[in-house]
Structures are given as C-alpha cells and as structure tokens.
Design a protein around this nucleic acid. Sequence first.
DNA 1: GGTGTACGATAGATCTATGA
DNA 2: TCATAGATCTATCGTACACC
Length: 227
Amino acid sequence: MKTSQESGRSAKGRGGARKPSRDAAPAAVTPEVAPVTAATTDLAPVVGANLRRLRVKRGLSLEKLSKLSGVSRAMLGQIELGQSAPTINVLWKISTALGVPFSGLIGQRQAGGVLVLRSDQAKTLTNHDGTYSSRALFPFDEPRRVEFYELRLAPHGEEHADGHAPGTTENLVVARGAIEIDIEGARQRLEQGDAIVFEADTAHTYRNPSDDEALMYLVMTYADTVG
DNA sequence: GGTGTACGATAGATCTATGA
DNA sequence: TCATAGATCTATCGTACACC
C-alpha cells in the first residue's frame, strides 16, 4: 500500500510544516509553514466552508477536485471539515484548480455597504521562515475579479510563487525599499515608487536585495468571474 | 458514486542535548 | 559559542471501510 506513495512523496518533498514552538497553540490555529497564520481567528473552518461552497457550486466531487488540484481527496475532505490547516502550497493548488483567487478560500463573505478592515483583524499569510508575508486588504468578494494585498519581504528574503490561473495579472508597486522580480528568466529591479504589471500565469520570484524590509502593494486581477 | 473517517507512513522543519 | 545528531512534531499522502 505504501509503495505507491514513495515515488510521489519523495519527489514532492512535502511536510516540514510545523509550529515554531512546541508550546505554541494547536496546529489548527497557527500552523506555520505556509501557514495561513490567522492572526486573531481560526481560519480552518472558514477555509473549509469556502472550499465546500466553491466546490459544490462547480458541481465537483472531492474526487474530481482531487484530480484537478493534485491534492488528495482525504486532504480535501479534512480541509472542508476544518480538521486540517493546509499549507500555502496546498491552498494554492486548490484555488488554482477552482479558478478562484487565493482570498476566495481564506476570506469571509460580507454583505455590501461600508466595510472597515482593521489591521489587527487582517489575515496574514507568512512563509515558513517568516521572511515573507501577505495581507489581504479586503475580504474576497465573489463578484469582484480583483484582489488587493500588502506584501512584506524581509531583507535579503526571497519568495517563489507558482503561476496563477491563466489570465491573471499582477500590478505591483514598491512602497518602501527595493525588490527584484524574476519573471520567465528575466529580472526586473524595482526601487521605491516603481511599479510593474505582468502576466502572472507563470512562476515568478520576488527577492529583496537590500538590507531593509521591502513593502509592496499588489493588485491581482483575474480573467474570469470567480466564485 | 460520493463522502466522512481512521490508520499508518513519509518528509522535512524545529527543538533539544551533547560535544568540541 | 557553534555544530551536529537524534528526537519530536505536523502536514500530507494513499488506502480501506462504513454510510447514504
């Protein structure tokens, strides 16, 4: 039974997600590698509810979504039940398979009107070593096809992003510091105040070459209506 | 057929102890 | 103080089984 796992596992090199400290909170609340580090709330139920809603809306079974995303059916089921704190990588696969923005999985639905998103209530995603973080600046709203993020990259930090769904565009401006972005082998250096727009359906890498933290604002637009 | 649950296994990051 | 090895922990997987 485990023989079939070995090839897939060794190639993928999964795992590694663990808490920064053994005395820390339960995994479901503050996972860490890829962690969807919910600053003030438990994201697992939110992610699970969003996943189930989006999956059912598309008429996909767990099995079909599993094949589309490359994430096991068992894992998808656990996420939907809020029993697993998936890594960024897994969430990324799922959101790509569903054709929805990342925040479509982690955001909570909100009726219209005025919405104030307090900084201390924001959901911040961090990478495994904490050198990179992204904060959604408004909850995902299905009719919209755009996301707005605040990104922070530690000095000499680096973050690799897989390609997004086809038609996805990133509009990024450097608010503080400087960064380098590798897109399809071409490197672009951006200083404070510089902006860039590029098709984000291919893998790209953000790098902070300076000794100071880089602060960026990112607007992502999607080709298709999501949700 | 689809779903929920449980189990054992794996990989890799982190923690802790130990020795130089 | 630093490096290393072993222990520990967790996300994730495939599979099996029961239920609807």
